[in-house]
Write a protein that binds this DNA or RNA. Structure first.
Lengths: 215, 215
DNA sequence: TAATAAAATGAATTTCAGTTCATTTTATAA
DNA sequence: TTATAAAATGAACTGAAATTCATTTTATTA
């Protein structure tokens, strides 16, 4: 009986799987979850419609995989960028800067997470909400730390954290949707100042660094 | 030839049309645009499925009507509430307070505009974007006026306006989705303070009112 | 009350995208 | 080179929801 084992066509298969994901990210970002058909994804990935189902059990499994990967990608990126800092304000800034850097680098990720997928179905909208909440949670932790250190005047750290994240979200979405503001980089520092003032950052005592808060 | 003219069954028909819209707002708010079927809307409005099509050409026409009405409702409400004030900061505050009051009063409106409809399809996502942009525009106008009067330190009024609106949006959505914060009213004043600080509101000179900015 | 037409009904039809599957192609190893 | 099975194909199938339409009900007026 001359059967056969898989060897390094495993690689080829893994490659094709990645290619499907890559293509799907493109198409989802352009259209939306329900706006894109498996047929379109398959075409973009240069495979037959049926082949798709050898790689993913269905459409939902695909978007789930994509959103999960994006979630990890974003969080890992943020954690890396934060790792350098110990100061609360620095960590806060590093988080948001990481988001913006990643969104600029990976446009599809931003479009899918912020624009195309929300509102799809309650089931896995939950996943997106989880991402947003995770960011708010991270932010709140930083704020609580700063509060304990007596370096903030604002009181309600939950509402502050939401305001903080929300202000960034709005500007990023404006940029994604209509290129307004044009330069996200430049808006970033304005936004950061806005929020530091909003948080009630007290003037630095014994610290040496950045003169980029209130003038 | 004994024909017939419509007289005040016109009223009845108009009534039924309103009832369909009312029912649809409920159902869309609970489910989502694609999550709700015309059959469900018809049942909720206590009519047969086919009857629906005597009142609206199709599902899209229905949601369009609803969103358009909500748009007008929101803007009119805001403009009314603003009308009392002349001071820039007061107008700003009145705008956001109007939003929040309306969202509390008309939960469906908030859910549909902020949660259920976004991400449906690019075509009439545009309508929602228009609403958001209109709010940002209004806000920016207030900020520009304040800037001219030299009552703000912040520079970029577009980014500030986006941050302002975005921070409110985030908190309102948190409240709609998970009841966090619990009391939107209370969060409002925190948020307002946050944003006034963020904008760089200068201490009042010759004005008499509210001591609710920085302490 | 009868004739007429608007309004309402809900079963039948259409549409459309997700998914399946019989068939073909490709890769493996004897 | 051939037998075998994995992988790929795309036309056919399916189900669900939008829309239509033949029929019934309701309202109107002579």
């Amino acid at each position: 009986m001359v059967y056969r084992q898989t060897n390094r066509i495993k690689e080829k298969i893994e490659c094709k799987r990645r290619e499907i994901i890559r293509a799907a990210r493109e198409v989802f970002a352009e259209n939306s979850y329900q706006g894109t058909s498996i047929k379109t994804v398959a075409q973009r990935a240069k495979i037959a419609t049926g082949t798709f189902y050898l790689y993913f059990s269905n459409k939902e499994a695909l978007i789930n995989t994509i959103v999960d990967e994006m979630f990890s990608e974003l969080l890992e990126y943020i954690k890396n960028e934060r790792a350098v800092y110990t100061d609360g304000f620095d960590k806060l800034q590093a988080s948001m800067e990481a988001c913006i850097k990643l969104f600029i680098k990976e446009n599809n990720l931003a479009k899918i997470l912020l624009i195309q997928v929300p509102g799809v179905n309650n089931a896995f909208n939950a996943k997106l909400i989880e991402i947003e909440n995770e960011l708010i949670k991270l932010t709140k932790e930083d704020l609580d730390e700063l509060k304990v250190q007596g370096r903030l005047t604002g009181e309600d750290t939950l509402v502050s954290a939401m305001a903080f994240v929300g202000s960034f979200r709005q500007v990023i979405i404006g940029w994604l949707r209509e290129g307004r503001p044009e330069k996200l980089n430049e808006a970033f520092s304005t936004l950061m100042q806005y929020n530091l003032r909003g948080l009630g950052k007290k003037p630095n005592h014994n610290r040496q660094e950045n003169g980029e808060d209130e003038r």
